[in-house]
Design a protein around this nucleic acid. Structure first.
Length: 231
DNA sequence: CCCTGATTCGC
DNA sequence: GCGAATCAGG
């Protein structure tokens, strides 16, 4: 398989939607997880949280050394020696910091788009979602509560959040359908499979039932489809 | 073990 | 450019 424009678009989309490289790989088909990652990097898609990227402390003999020297090992040496002034914690804030209130006008702030209150003892602190109790006779205008809205970090919809969708299926994910295709919440079991089977242990028990001895008739439960055709 | 993404390097 | 091999953290 080659990277056609279409497939590259799919890759970009899925990558930016937060799907893992594995999911993208077997969704596209014909490519490995590594291929996806490699391509993603080549495309300049900068990946978000990677399990292996936590610290950046190039002290003395760094870890990335036991590679094959190949050609020009001096490059790595110079790179290791260079960062005398290490960058001070490159933590990327996902949201822009609220601008400093140059013009102290509380009234204006409370009007429409009050930014998240900075941790200053400006007003009486109420907990998130908390409300100031008003006395029965108080007729004051209610204090506008802090906007409960918060920027959602990522992930598409909550619908697919914890449900095993078609995209989540792998060789070791139980593929037992839950619900019916077409229903909005149709998904799959998602448990770990019983090794060698497409289903988890529980659903293997449903899928593969022991042959009952001859003669034993088990009165079947009422069938939802009117029952099988009996000839 | 499984998973994840990052990186390297021969092709 | 591609991706298997390898690394490394969870």
């Amino acid at each position: 398989m080659s990277w056609t424009d279409e497939r590259i678009d799919q890759l970009k989309g899925m990558w930016e939607r937060g799907l893992t490289a594995s999911q993208i790989a077997d969704e596209l088909g014909g490519v490995s997880r590594n291929a996806v990652i490699g391509k993603a990097h080549r495309l300049g898609l900068q990946s978000r949280p990677s399990p292996v990227k936590a610290n950046e402390t190039p002290k003395k003999a760094a870890a990335p050394a036991p590679r094959k020297p190949a050609t020009a090992p001096d490059v790595e040496a110079s790179r290791a020696a260079a960062p005398v002034v290490s960058a001070p914690a490159p933590i990327r804030a996902p949201v822009a910091a609220p601008a400093a209130p140059a013009t102290p006008t509380p009234a204006a702030a409370a009007a429409t788009d009050a930014p998240p209150p900075p941790p200053q003892p400006r007003i009486i602190s109420v907990g998130p979602g908390g409300f100031l109790r008003q006395g029965p006779g108080d007729q004051q205008a209610p204090i506008p509560p802090a906007p409960p809205r918060r920027l959602v970090p990522a992930k598409p919809s909550a619908e697919i959040a914890d449900k095993t969708t078609l995209l989540d299926l792998t060789e070791r994910i139980c593929k037992w359908p839950m619900g019916h295709p077409g229903e909005p919440d149709f998904h799959f079991c998602g448990e770990q499979v019983n090794p060698g089977f497409p289903y988890c242990v529980e659903h293997c028990g449903r899928a593969y039932q022991a042959q009952l001895p001859r003669g034993t008739r088990r009165p079947p439960p009422p069938l939802p489809f009117g029952g099988p055709r009996v000839r």
